[in-house]
């Protein structure tokens, strides 16, 4: 990575960031400001031509994050109902990713302090968990079952009400 320089004061337009694997990205300052960390760096004149190195964010998730921030920064204030809905659709499509990318986004968004993205990724993960049986959850999220069969049985017994199969309400659609 290139050496840092101190003359980064005028970077009002595009902010450069560098992923852990050395890829360079650019985004408008308004987009970078959505990241708490980048905003502090910019405020402290640490955004230079060489780019801000983000050594725990790899290129793949960083590209997504740049995408997210750019989209959201462009539509940050005075949203009409249609624009808000479009942004919602964008978010919904944006977060349709595999679990590896989801983990990367969770960690990277949290690390960079991109609040909106953190919430989006966290909610997405919670929604994925919600619709699965314990076994499916273990498979999907790589969790080891550390219960013995006896312990499992005990839990089921003590929370019988939660494991009873009851008829769902007569919903028609």
């Amino acid at each position: 990575m290139a050496a840092a320089t101190d003359d980064a004061g005028d970077s009002n337009e595009m902010i450069r960031v560098v992923s852990s694997d050395g890829e360079h990205f650019e985004m408008p300052e308004a987009a970078a400001n959505l990241s708490l960390v980048l905003r502090h760096m910019i405020e402290d004149d640490c955004a230079d031509a060489a780019g801000i190195p983000l050594a725990v964010v790899a290129a793949k998730p960083l590209a997504k994050i740049v995408d997210y921030c750019t989209k959201h920064a462009a539509k940050s204030s005075g949203l009409t109902i249609e624009e808000a809905e479009e942004l919602k659709r964008f978010d919904a499509e944006f977060i349709e990713v595999d679990t590896d990318m989801l983990y990367d986004l969770l960690v990277a968004a949290d690390f960079m302090g991109v609040e909106g993205l953190s919430k989006l990724a966290v909610q997405r993960t919670a929604d994925l968990i919600k619709g699965k049986t314990p076994e499916q959850n273990r498979e999907t999220f790589g969790i080891v079952n550390d219960f013995t069969p006896e312990e499992e049985e005990e839990i089921c017994k003590e929370n019988e009400w939660a494991f009873q199969i009851t008829k769902p309400p007569s919903r028609l659609c």
Binding site: L106, V107, D110, S118, A126, P134, N145, D146, F147, N159
Partner: peptide
């Protein structure tokens, strides 16, 4: 902290959800 945030956002609409998910791991 992230895992906590995820688990916090599980929907309470189905009261059986949390006890069932207790079976995933300790």
């Amino acid at each position: 902290d992230i895992i906590d945030q995820i688990l916090l956002r599980l929907s309470p609409e189905d009261p059986k959800l949390l006890p069932r998910l207790s079976l995933v791991c300790k």
